[in-house]
Design a protein around this nucleic acid. Structure first.
Length: 417
RNA sequence: GUGGGCGUAGCUCAGCCAGGUUAGAGCGCCAGGUUGUGGCCCUGGAGGCCGGGGGUUCAAGUCCCCUCGCUCACCCCA
């Protein structure tokens, strides 16, 4: 067993999965940059206070923060998400609004790892600050939907709800508290604990025992202000017009405290119910102000890269992009010619690999085959002496040819064209 | 943080229940068959503190305890 291995919840991503990971981000960037979003790269480390507004009743802040005091006596934390960082950046730099930003990168939460949940996990996302317009809500949601479509992930369900304005939400939480306390004896032990911290999240319980009390609970729609209801109705009409299908779910409560009004979640059908959310987001109009900025509306979403890729695996969608070189150089005459040839071909823009350590012809040819190369370029002792090389097709029955070294590049290029 | 399952070769695993010669298989790797040619086939080889520690026993990969790790679920969330 190795002396050192990855810390719990951390993992190495090796090829070819790493290429898929990178390609994921590329597709996302293509989709959102085409809609006017610019990349923002916030630091992994922030003052711990930046994240406090996520909600001190949430585990994310209360129990899962990777925080410590640095050598300058600053209390800092590895970011558990990036929305708060983006809002902090907005307050610090005050870019012109609307500020449309996208990001990708790792976040950190000290949780017990399991399938689709790591202590270091990647998200991609977008945020828009400075605009209060239901059509922006619809744009953001539509872009998320389009992204999954571009990836090829089919079994995605968009779930939609509105938490109302802050006052609506506050009255609703109080009503929920009264309702569940009246039915506390029907609730599971776990939900009774949740009730004490955050009545809203009791709605999120999937335990059968809680189902009757949840079914009888008041619904957020009864508490919407006229403005909040109108805003939400416009969002729905815009999605309808764009042909984006969604399901209304009055029980959808997002985990973080800053959400208000429009909230949504992307759920993958192939994932188990407990962790089927591959992405989520909503409005967080008060967050910038909480971080010391001016009152600024905001909306965005984050998508979990790891979980989305798991969903793709289960569906057979978005396979790892093939990584193959164009040519593989075999050299049984010492290796110097292989170095010269690989250098020449690579400088010409070709993808070229070779074998090392002077292994046997058979061994090097096996490596050539496994590399996926379409051509083998072979230099044995005869060719080395004569100043020639053999060009051998590996993916067809075409005959191999022997050419002078001066003609090697053009021969290879022609064979690959 | 709480439970269940699992740690044996680089990888996937058998062997454990009923302790007993030198711990196995497939794949992969290296070499040979073909003294200069991949895929298919055959032969050989390298590679294991059987996760770690303690205990029971004449004897432990196998039984017991502890511990670490992985994993699944709860919780929480992407």
């Amino acid at each position: 067993m190795p002396t050192f291995r990855t810390s719990p919840g951390m993992r190495d991503v090796l090829a070819p999965d790493s290429a898929r990971f990178r390609h994921f981000t590329t597709v996302f960037a293509d989709v959102v940059e085409a809609a006017g979003y610019g990349q923002v790269i916030p630091p992994l480390l922030e003052d711990v206070g930046v994240f406090a507004r996520i909600g001190d009743a949430t585990d994310v802040v209360a129990k899962e923060m990777y925080d410590f005091v640095d050598k300058g006596e600053r209390h800092v934390a590895l970011r558990p998400e990036q929305t708060a960082s983006v809002c902090r950046a907005f307050v610090q730099h005050r870019p012109a609004v609307p500020w449309k930003a996208w990001y990708s990168g790792p976040n950190f939460r000290y949780e017990k790892p399991q399938r689709g949940r790591y202590r270091q996990f990647d998200q991609v996302g977008i945020e828009v600050l400075g605009v209060d317009d239901p059509y922006l809500d619809a744009e953001v949601i539509t872009l998320g939907w389009e992204f999954f479509d571009r990836l090829g992930l089919r079994g995605v369900t968009l779930v939609l709800n509105s938490l109302g304005e802050p006052a609506d939400r506050g009255r609703y939480v109080e009503a929920l508290r009264q309702h569940f306390e009246a039915h506390a004896d029907e609730l599971s032990d776990v939900s009774r604990e949740t009730l004490a911290r955050n009545p809203l999240r009791v709605l999120d319980s999937k335990r059968a025992q809680d189902a009757p009390a949840i079914a009888a609970a008041p619904r957020i729609g009864e508490f919407w202000s006229v403005a909040a209801a109108a805003h939400f109705a416009t969002v729905q009409r815009a999605l309808d017009a764009a042909g984006v299908p969604y399901t209304l779910d009055p029980l959808l409560v997002r985990g973080l405290d800053y959400y208000r009004r429009t909230t949504f979640e992307f759920q993958a059908a192939s994932l188990e119910s407990a962790q089927n959310a591959v992405g989520g987001g909503g409005r967080y109009d008060g967050l910038v102000e909480d971080l010391g900025g001016p009152p600024t509306p905001g909306i965005g979403f984050a998508l979990g890269v790891d979980r989305t890729l798991i969903a793709c695996d289960d569906e057979g969608a978005f396979p790892p992009p093939p990584v193959a070189v164009d040519a593989f150089v075999v050299d049984t005459a010492g290796g110097a010619d292989a170095h010269a040839i690989t250098t020449e071909l690579r400088r010409a823009g070709l993808r070229v690999d070779r074998a090392f350590e002077g292994r046997s012809m058979k061994s090097q040819m096996k490596s050539a085959d496994r590399s996926g190369a379409r051509l083998a370029v072979i230099v044995g002792t005869d060719e080395a002496t004569a100043g020639t090389a053999v060009v051998r097709p590996l993916r067809s029955d075409a005959a191999q040819t022997t050419v002078a070294r001066a003609e090697l590049l053009s021969t290879v290029q022609e064979a690959l064209s």
